[in-house]
Computed example of a mutant assay.
Amino acid sequence: MPHVTTSDGTELYYTEQGSGRPVLFSHGWPLSSDAWQVELKVFADAGYRAIAHDRRGHGRSSKTYAGNDMDTYAKDLSELVEALDLHDLVVVGHSTGGGEVVRYAAQYGEGRVAKVVTVGAVPPIMLISDANPEGTPIENFDEIRSHVLKDRSQFWKDLAVSFFGFNRDGAAVSQGAIDDFWRQGMLVNLSAAYDCVKAFSETDQNGDLEALAVPILIAHGDDDQIVPIAAAAEKAIRLVKDGTLKVYPGAPHGIFGAYQDQLDQDILDFIRA
């Protein structure tokens, strides 16, 4: 399996398909590059070099105890990009991966990153505060950490339901999607899964969004139960210099079904523009 070894000795797994302009996909918590399997084929078929990696602690990458924070995630991504010598790069990040690609592009991407895409992404910050009254209370994140410690296997199964919006009236439930979410979640190192909750919920990325010097497509479902749009995309679009906000009516947090089909086409159109 292809890996890149970072400066602190962490092995990052990556996979790629196709050739042409590079498009790099960063997954959400607690998943892996497998979450992008459809996009790897769709974008390779469209003439791109589609690349996806497993974040440290996730999937087939090193099961890390240290470095499970947004700064290190962005640094890891920069080392992967440099190792693969990618230029004119489009970075696409979902959920936590959206935070990762935004920080990477803002702090390391000059001369390499041409465009950024976020989907259901966590920036600018999820945690509620006086400055972010639309955010999520710390008690919610404490409850997530408790579930991860006590019975993560059952928690992944339960979380998948709201992740994909399968708890909504009339939703076409896919047991396969739930099972695959569980499968990917069970590959996460427990320390990494636990620490990543703080990374995705408490990292302030207002400055990262303001610093972006390239176009960004901010995509978000308006029925996202994991990263509510009011505290995320609706705020992020006001911070960036060159942004396009695309809202998907009724779409959940998870990328699946008709939402996935439309999103992939919109990303392709954004890249080509």
Rank of each mutant, 00 (worst) to 15 (best):
S19N: 13
Y13P: 03
G254D: 00
D8F: 06
D85Q: 15
N167K: 09
G243R: 08
S78I: 02
D8W: 08
A236N: 07
T72C: 04
I255H: 03
A171D: 10
D45E: 15
D269H: 13
D180W: 12
A46S: 13
L84V: 12
R183I: 09
D88T: 08
D71H: 13
V38E: 14
R55V: 09
Y13E: 10
E202W: 08
L187R: 14
K157S: 12
D8A: 09
S162Y: 06
V227A: 11
A66W: 11
D242I: 10
E134N: 15
L239K: 08
W182Q: 01
H27R: 11
L31D: 02
G120I: 06
L77V: 05
L84E: 09
A193M: 10
L245P: 04
V113K: 00
G250T: 11
R49H: 15
N68R: 00
I178M: 03
G111C: 04
T6L: 08
L31Y: 04
Q37N: 15
T244M: 12
K241L: 06
Q265D: 12
N167C: 10
I178N: 00
A44K: 00
M1R: 12
S61Q: 11
R49I: 10
T10C: 02
S78P: 04
T244K: 14
K63M: 06
A233T: 07
F256P: 01
V173I: 15
L245F: 05
G59Q: 04
A105Y: 03
V214W: 04
G93R: 02
F164K: 09
R60D: 14
D34N: 13
L80A: 05
D222C: 05
E202H: 11
G109T: 07
Y194T: 10
F166D: 08
G20A: 11
T6H: 03
G109Y: 02
V122C: 06
D76I: 05
D195G: 10
K241M: 07
I216K: 01
I229F: 01
L190T: 13
T118E: 05
P123N: 05
V119F: 06
E39V: 09
R272V: 13
S146Q: 14
N140M: 12
V122Y: 00
A193W: 01
G18Y: 00
L80W: 03
Q107R: 15
K157F: 05
V42K: 04
G257I: 05
V122N: 02
S26L: 09
D34R: 14
A230K: 15
A83G: 03
D223K: 14
A258D: 15
S146L: 12
D45R: 13
G99S: 05
M126P: 06
F43G: 07
Q17C: 11
D242T: 13
A121Q: 08
G99N: 04
D169V: 12
T5S: 11
V81D: 02
D261E: 15
S7I: 09
P30K: 03
D130F: 08
G59T: 08
G97D: 01
T96W: 02
G207Y: 04
D142P: 04
Q260P: 03
R56V: 04
S153Q: 09
L31F: 04
G20S: 12
H58A: 15
A236D: 05
G254S: 02
S201P: 09
D69F: 07
E100D: 10
